[in-house]
Simulated scan of single mutants.
Amino acid sequence: MAIVITQQPAFLPLLPIDDSIIVTDSYQSYLERANSLDLSLLKSKDIESAKKLLRETLAVGYSTTFLNQFIYNKDSFCFCVRDTIRNAVIGVIGGKISRSVMDSTVCTGHLMILAVSTTWRRFGLGQQLLNKLEGAFCDGSVTASFNRRTQLRSIYLQTEIANTNAIRFYENNGFSYEKLERGYYGSGKDGVVMRKHVC
């Protein structure tokens, strides 16, 4: 799936090409570079690049085993944006669907990871990744693997309470504050649970 740059950022950061860095002087440079981006399911060959991106952008490191669950578990999904010129993952989102213990006709989506390279932020890549994961969660053929009558009712996530940009992004996409989780990201690093009702 081709990536569409949906918005022009207020500034143009440094744009890495191979192992060098160039300064871009126009939005057109980014548009030309966007032709090299591809949004699709994460594959085994992308794991190391995705781990590198996650280490660089998130407060928590993720193992190969953690990322493999998205590839091999039929109720888990992981999409990534690849820069085909650099052969690097520059955006990744992953989550899974689980059935309610209280009501077997209800399932919930858990957005577990979302990261976009700092170079490519504010171009709408995070939005496209979120839309792709929500679409996979809401696809009837996915929830049918649980039960024909199963319906996705909500999607939830955790993010660090200090990450105000992420919280604002999720609020703009229909997520609401649900609860605080003290120490979720380690000593003194509280998390917030946010939820979006979809049905």
Score class of each variant (00 low, 15 high):
Thr164Glu: 14
Thr24Leu: 10
Tyr177Pro: 06
Asn173Ile: 01
Asn163Trp: 00
Asp18Asn: 13
Lys51Tyr: 01
Tyr177His: 14
Arg182Asp: 05
Glu56His: 07
Lys52Cys: 05
Leu31Gly: 01
Ile3Val: 15
Ile113Ser: 04
Asn87Leu: 11
Gly109Lys: 01
Arg148Leu: 10
Ala144Cys: 09
Arg33Trp: 11
Gln158Thr: 07
His197Val: 12
Gly183Trp: 02
Val23Leu: 13
Asn172Leu: 06
Lys52Trp: 00
Gly188Ser: 04
Val142Thr: 13
Asp19Asn: 15
Gln128Glu: 11
Ala136Lys: 12
Glu181Val: 08
Glu171Asn: 11
Leu67Gln: 02
Pro16Cys: 03
Val4Cys: 12
Leu130Arg: 00
Met194Ala: 04
Asn147Glu: 09
Glu134Ala: 01
Ala115Tyr: 02
Ile71Lys: 02
Asp46Ala: 02
Asn35Arg: 11
Lys96Gln: 07
Thr6Met: 12
Asp46Pro: 11
Ile155Phe: 01
Leu39Val: 05
Ile21Phe: 12
Thr6Ala: 06
Trp120His: 10
Ile113Leu: 15
Glu56Phe: 09
Arg168Asn: 10
Ser40Glu: 10
Gln7Pro: 03
Ala10Asp: 15
Ile90Phe: 01
Leu31Lys: 15
Val101Cys: 02
Tyr177Ser: 05
Asn73Pro: 00
Leu58Thr: 14
Val101Tyr: 06
Leu67Met: 01
Leu39Phe: 06
Gly135Glu: 14
Tyr156Cys: 05
Glu171Met: 08
Asn87Ser: 14
Ala144Arg: 12
Gly191Trp: 02
Pro13Tyr: 05
Ser176Arg: 14
Gly135Ser: 13
Gly183Cys: 08
Ser26Asn: 08
Thr24Glu: 06
Leu15Glu: 07
Lys74Asn: 11
Gly135Leu: 09
Ala59Ile: 15
Tyr27Gln: 06
Ile161Ala: 10
Ile85Gln: 11
Ser141Glu: 09
Asp103Phe: 13
Phe70Ala: 05
Thr164Asn: 04
Leu125Asp: 11
Met112Glu: 10
